[in-house]
Amino acid sequence: MTARKGWHTVTTTVGLNELKPHQCGVVAEVLAPDSDLERLMAMGVCGGRTVELVRVGDPLILKVYGTRVGVSARLAEKIRVMPCQPLSCLLGPDGRPS
């Protein structure tokens, strides 16, 4: 992960479910992908993409590429993300931080 090289000393990754409401994170890696996680990856939850946690809980709602996806918390914790500073990356409709 090239994106991670410069970061690993200062930032640790957390599970997507640990983000705060409306906080974004950049996907670092997806642990042990099974068919469900692959489906999420095909939807864009994929290394280097920014995702936003819209609703916390189980199931939670995440937003990627402008699409909202309901996801079980047990899947979300396998999606390791580097959290962005709160409110620092409002997602544009194309899913990229503006």
């Binding site: 992960m1 994929c46 280097g48 402008g66 409002l90 544009g92 194309d94 990229r96």
Partner: peptide, 27 residues
């Protein structure tokens, strides 16, 4: 790209869309 087999495709998608799509910064 061990973390995600779809990464290169999405990078390509982003590139193409950045050239063809005009969108507001905030939805």
């Amino acid at each position: 790209c061990s973390s995600c087999p779809f990464q290169s495709r999405y990078t390509w998608s982003d590139d193409v869309s950045s050239r063809c799509v005009r969108a507001p910064r905030v939805a």
